[in-house]
């Protein structure tokens, strides 16, 4: 299973990459959302995990741009903010609330979500 992770927090990125790789996932990690978008190819990944707050481009903007290129790929949004249903609907209108994941999340919880 191929997973693309975009998070500007390099320590979150590297620990998640290591943890998911140990559990058999193929992980592609980006700390720069603009670079992630430039390199993005549709029908390549099984899952995207995007941070909701990043410099240069916020998570929901990245989400919108990626959706234009790939309407089907499954997306998880990672957020350290309070999950607020009205904001969520505004920024990620077609995203299932259960795919919004509040940080901090343990590796085990994340893997459970991925396999669900």
């Amino acid at each position: 299973m191929k997973i693309l992770i975009v998070d500007d927090e390099k320590d979150i990125l590297s620990s998640l990459k290591m943890g998911l790789e140990r559990n058999g996932f193929q992980v592609y990690a980006y700390s720069e959302p603009l670079k992630a978008l430039a390199d993005f190819k549709p029908n390549t990944y099984d899952l995207l995990i995007l941070d909701s707050k990043m410099p240069n481009m916020r998570g929901f903007e990245l989400y919108r741009e990626i959706r234009k290129k790939d309407a089907r790929v499954k997306v998880f949004i990672l957020t350290a903010f309070e999950i607020n249903s009205t904001d969520t609907q505004e920024f990620f209108p077609d995203l299932d609330v259960k795919n919004i994941i509040q940080k901090p999340v343990t590796l085990a919880q994340l893997i459970e979500k991925i396999n669900a």
Binding site: S15, G19, A80, K103, P104, T106, L107
Partner: peptide, 18 residues
Amino acid sequence: AAHELRNPIMPIITSTSL
């Protein structure tokens, strides 16, 4: 504050289990 406190906790949890 919530955002700033949660962000560093995440890699601590992950790296501790690793």
